[in-house]
Nucleic acid binder design. Structure first.
Lengths: 124, 124
DNA sequence: TATAGCGCTATGAATAGTCAAGCGCTTTGC
DNA sequence: GCAAAGCGCTTGACTATTCATAGCGCTATA
């Protein structure tokens, strides 16, 4: 598509904006997991989609797949060094989210300014 | 979908992983822009998609829209305080990308180990 | 006068993601 | 000893999202 010079930020965003990728990375930062375990931890992801994402992430070198046994099937997915390095990205997203995201009236996320002490905190 | 307690990181990721959102934010961090200008700067985004994204981001409070005149149409989109705060997120993505992303043999992005300081990274 | 540009919206086609079911096989629980 | 649950996925049918392209009314510039 684009023939302009290679821009690392642009490329990084292209990877990270793919649906579920950040969720997958965040989950794997807690430790290696098997396919179904990962699926459950991420929550709501389709196995077909997860398989496609994991294959892409593995080809990119963000995730490493280890097959312990074919039958019974036993596999673990873990982050590579480049994947673990996304810790900083997740951390800054975390900080931003904690500071700016609240739940709106209809459950939709809303970004406010700095938290006012007067405003009620969303609590369940 | 999920009925578990509100998790700000999860919510933040949900917002940021939507296609084009990070690109839009990154562009708007450089300054306010009109619709077509923004479209060109982001590069490759469909106007229909951009319109939907901007409306959502505006409703969320990440982006503010200012209509200067209806005819001729003149509008600018800018980041709110919450949007500007994403500077840190973009920065860490930038750092990660510069350090770990290279171009593979077929033009596909690949994540390698630590990059040599001698190697230059093109900026856009 | 002609052209290009503004901020969008309307189409239909292409692509991406989702749901549900299920495979062969082993372990676990009773 | 036998049923049920779990493993890592795959398949096929469906839906949602994104795409390319065209165009609107109008004005500012050439």
């Amino acid at each position: 598509m684009e023939q302009r010079e290679f821009c690392p930020v642009h490329a990084a965003i292209q990877v990270l904006q793919e649906k579920w990728v950040l969720h997958i990375v965040r989950t794997l930062l807690e430790g290696p997991r098997g396919f179904n375990d990962l699926s459950r931890s991420v929550g709501g992801i389709n196995p077909a989609t997860l398989a496609v994402r994991l294959e892409r992430l593995e080809r990119m070198g963000l995730v490493s797949k280890t097959v312990h046994s074919y039958m019974p099937p036993r596999t673990t997915y873990a982050l590579t060094e480049a994947g673990v390095a996304l810790h900083d990205v997740i951390n800054s997203i975390d900080a931003w989210g904690r500071r700016f995201i609240r739940v709106g009236a209809e459950g939709e996320p809303v970004c406010g300014g700095v938290r006012q002490p007067s405003e009620p905190a969303a609590s369940h």
